[in-house]
Write a protein that binds this DNA or RNA. Structure first.
Length: 255
DNA sequence: TAGGCCATCTGGTCCT
DNA sequence: AGGACCAGATGGCCTA
């Protein structure tokens, strides 16, 4: 019936569906049982919960549907919704996998909101780095015209930094510009989060902006994620985070 | 114990 | 008509 029989919750221990998503365990759902158990009494008492348990019906009214049909419909809808949320969580896990943040059994995973905010910061930072690289490339290959007169810098070939494994995203960027890890200075490194505690918003680079405003205001965010490039993440991926020194400087001098 | 985070249920709305 | 999407409500788990 439910199409999500094989899907796993991203949460290790779901309060209601502890073992799996089979119908047997589904019916162990306390909330559902409570609803349906109370249906008769609630109907007599005129409580709203009765309607919820009965499903509310779309095409047919509750009167038209037999109780079993209503229950089946409700189960189907619930199953779909559960599957939808599981898919959403899978996508969220996929996003976590490509985030430059520590992952592992001993590290508590990022919350959803943290994942989204970090992803946004990451994208902004990569975009900024890309722009910076474009400028440098234009500089080196003479596209810069007059401005290239003042600074004839040479870009060193990519320096292998790494005894540390790089994240694929970081790797590709890394190979593009070379390492500037030595240029990373962290005057006041943030403490890394405890292994079992989720990183706070401030740890994700939001030291100077309330989370709410960051969610609304991209420009505000652009000047607020400056701590991200050098954040002392226990993850090896973001240590040599590939970005140019001047980009980092602009981050740190922003605002 | 309060607060954060999460999974789930539910009813409404929109889309195909 | 049926499914997807959404937001509100609820309750469990965990941490400070």
């Amino acid at each position: 019936m439910d199409s999500d029989a094989g899907s796993n919750s991203s949460r290790s221990s779901s309060p209601d569906l502890v073992v799996d998503d089979s119908m047997g365990s589904f019916f162990s759902n306390k909330m559902f049982q409570a609803y349906c158990r109370e249906e008769g009494a609630a109907r007599a008492a005129g409580q709203g919960r009765t309607d919820r348990c009965a499903g509310g019906g779309k095409s047919k009214t509750r009167v038209d549907l037999k109780e079993g049909d209503v229950q089946d419909l409700r189960l189907k809808v619930n199953g779909r919704e559960r599957k939808r949320m599981h898919d959403l969580n899978q996508a969220m896990d996929g996003l976590r996998e490509v985030m430059p943040y520590a992952q592992g059994p001993s590290v508590r995973k990022l919350s959803k909101i943290s994942t989204l905010m970090l992803a946004r910061n990451y994208i902004l930072m990569l975009s900024s780095s890309l722009e910076e690289m474009k400028k440098l490339v234009g500089d080196v290959y003479g596209g810069g015209g007059s401005q290239s007169r003042t600074s004839h810098r040479r870009i060193n070939p990519p320096a292998p930094t790494a005894h540390l494994p790089l994240h694929p995203l970081a790797q590709s960027l890394h190979s593009l510009v070379g390492s500037t890890a030595s240029a990373l200075h962290h005057p006041s490194p943030l403490p890394a989060p405890a292994p079992h505690s989720p990183p706070s918003a401030s740890y994700l680079g939001f030291h100077h902006a309330p989370v709410q405003s960051l969610l609304k205001d991209p420009l505000h965010l652009a000047s607020s994620y400056r701590h991200f490039p050098g954040m002392p993440c226990p993850c090896s991926l973001c240590q040599p985070l590939p970005t140019t020194a001047s980009t980092l400087h602009s981050f740190s001098m922003a605002k």
